[in-house]
Computed example of a mutant assay.
Amino acid sequence: MPGANHSTVTQFILIGFSAFPHLQLMLFLLLLLMYLFTLLGNLLIMATVWSERGLHTPMYLLLCALSVSEILYTVAIIPRMLADLLSTRRSIAFLACASQMFFSFTFGFTHSFLLTVMGYDRYVAICHPLRYSVLMSPRVCTCLLGCSWAGGSVIGMVVTTVIFHLSFCGPSEIHHFACHVPPLLKLACGDDVLVVSLGVGLVCIMALLGCLLLILLSYAFIVAAILKISSPEGRNKAFSTCASHLTVVVVHYGFASVIYLKPKGPQSPEGETLMGITYTVLTPFLSPIIFSLRNKELKVAIKKTFFSKLYPEKNVMT
């Protein structure tokens, strides 16, 4: 990374879980189960959409892309975190730390952009149903997906390059379980640390708030369109197509606000670690559950595709 030659630190020590020495085994088992469930849940969604032709629509293509971003985001952080829970040596090389930050920012912000595109998809489906095939054509959908991944990659590259262009003069202990920006900035030295801190914070907050505002704008039009539907059945059906996405948005931005919009002031290392777990582990864990339970069409497809094969006798009887 640029600036690596300016640094006297060649590796960092991740001490995020050292505050919980007697809970590390329990945390390892709990986080491992949640991680495996996250992987299996997202893979189940992807396999269901792939195997069911009725789900080959932009809505479920975007859902598959969202599952991919979640899997890659968790892979970038959680395996290393689980290994550190069982290890007494929690060192991470300078380049490995930079790589982890790049991939976590890339896939994390790609996730936010994809949620925004999914909000636009629901807006078009409900407010402009007759033009849906044109406004969400395969070409448009592919372009939106490409822009989401490109946007996440640009933010990841910019933030990582700026952070690791700083000089790190020691100490090398990161009070977190991952290469997170705030604890890393506390280890940097030089006159431009404050400028970098403000710049990185501004980029992250502006990107998240921009996505959130676009989603809120989409739902403002969606709610207005739903209220014009005369029949209660029609209103319920229209809103049910948005329920899972809206729930995931609330969870995603609720936990993201804890990380990026928390009040300034002294924070205990234990508090930083626990807040980091909520966004890194809990949000990806909840997402496939919400989509599987709140999306009726997907839930039916999962039962048809997999449970009918696991329990063929029961399926025949029903």
Rank of each mutant, 00 (worst) to 15 (best):
135 L>Q: 13
302 I>L: 11
280 T>R: 02
222 I>M: 03
201 G>Q: 06
187 L>T: 11
98 A>W: 06
239 F>P: 05
254 G>P: 06
275 M>S: 10
9 V>W: 02
132 Y>S: 11
253 Y>G: 09
89 R>H: 07
147 C>V: 15
298 L>R: 11
207 A>L: 06
195 V>Y: 10
52 E>S: 12
130 L>R: 15
45 I>F: 01
39 L>D: 07
144 L>S: 08
312 P>L: 04
214 L>N: 13
25 L>H: 13
61 L>V: 08
86 L>D: 02
232 P>T: 02
111 H>L: 12
71 I>Y: 08
143 C>L: 13
106 T>R: 09
316 V>A: 14
290 I>D: 12
196 V>M: 07
126 I>A: 08
114 L>G: 11
47 A>K: 14
263 P>L: 13
74 T>F: 03
301 A>T: 06
104 S>Q: 10
190 G>A: 05
52 E>A: 05
235 R>E: 02
114 L>D: 06
190 G>M: 05
226 I>W: 05
190 G>V: 04
197 S>E: 12
98 A>S: 07
254 G>E: 11
171 P>S: 02
39 L>H: 06
162 V>K: 15
238 A>M: 09
73 Y>V: 00
21 P>A: 09
205 I>A: 05
251 V>H: 08
155 I>V: 12
175 H>C: 06
280 T>A: 04
115 L>V: 10
205 I>G: 00
220 A>I: 01
223 V>A: 12
306 F>L: 12
162 V>W: 15
1 M>G: 09
285 F>S: 10
93 A>D: 14
75 V>G: 00
139 R>N: 06
246 L>K: 12
138 P>W: 06
45 I>N: 03
232 P>F: 01
103 F>R: 03
140 V>K: 11
39 L>F: 03
86 L>S: 03
273 T>M: 04
66 L>V: 03
